[in-house]
Amino acid sequence: MNKKQADSIPINQYQVTGFFKGFLIHTFLLIVTLTCLFPLFWMVRSSLMTNQTVFVDKSLFPPDIHFYNYIQAWTEGNFGMYFLNSVIYTSCVVFGIVLVSSLAAYAFSRLQFPGKNFFFYMFVAAMMIPLPGSFVPLYKLMNDLGLINTRIGYILCMINVGLSLSILLLKTFFDKMPPDLEDAARMDGCGRLGIWWNVALPLARPAIAVIVIFNSLNVWNEYILATLLLNDKNLMPLQRGLMVFQGSHSVDYPLLMAGLTIAALPIILIYLLMQKHIIKGLSSGAIVG
């Protein structure tokens, strides 16, 4: 009996350390999860309170819940219209970036032409130089082009903002793509555009998912350029509506929090829908340069 017990000790020990390790890992992960979710939770929680209780009542789940803030924020903040605009901008910009950057990245990776490296490094360098003062020349330029206060002007500007990083990511991805498939397509009589469309793009789907989420975040959360370039209220994206809302309701915290929640919710949803592809995209080597 004694002997049997002694035999089983090492196994037990192994199991115990394994369990202990798992416990530690999960504790660590859960703590980080908590810090990630807490501010978000607090935002939603506060949006359901009233201005009288919001700073005093520190309970996690307030006793009275007021959904009314959301209705008020939605109507007073005019979020419906801004929302639609943001959807238009985000989808157009992302579509444009994917189209333009995948064409360019494919050429940088697979095709030969003079000045290839020069152009490529130009894009890379642009990623590093911030142009905080560029609003004056940019505005002047947009005005000369007749693009001030137009959707297309804002969309083109935002395409430019996301272009560099997207080209870089896609190029590293295309570099790793096996050439056999392209050869096969060439045999079938595909031209360069055909290969790009029929072979490269479908293969790059995971990398494109990364670009889509990255640029959606950028466009959805942008307001500085929007304020600069757009005049009409019915062209404003959501974040700019939120800035105005914040200005006029800075004193009503629950209402403000309801506005913030409304603005943050769609992008969280997009992310939840896309997250499967992102990990896949990243692990297929999109960023490993």
Partner: peptide
């Protein structure tokens, strides 16, 4: 009546628009 907030963004916009004379 067009509103631009916050006021920093408004100031930038005015400067930029002045340069373009619009």
């Amino acid at each position: 009546v067009d509103l631009y907030a916050p006021s920093d963004a408004y100031s930038q916009k005015i400067i930029a628009a002045a340069q373009s004379r619009i």
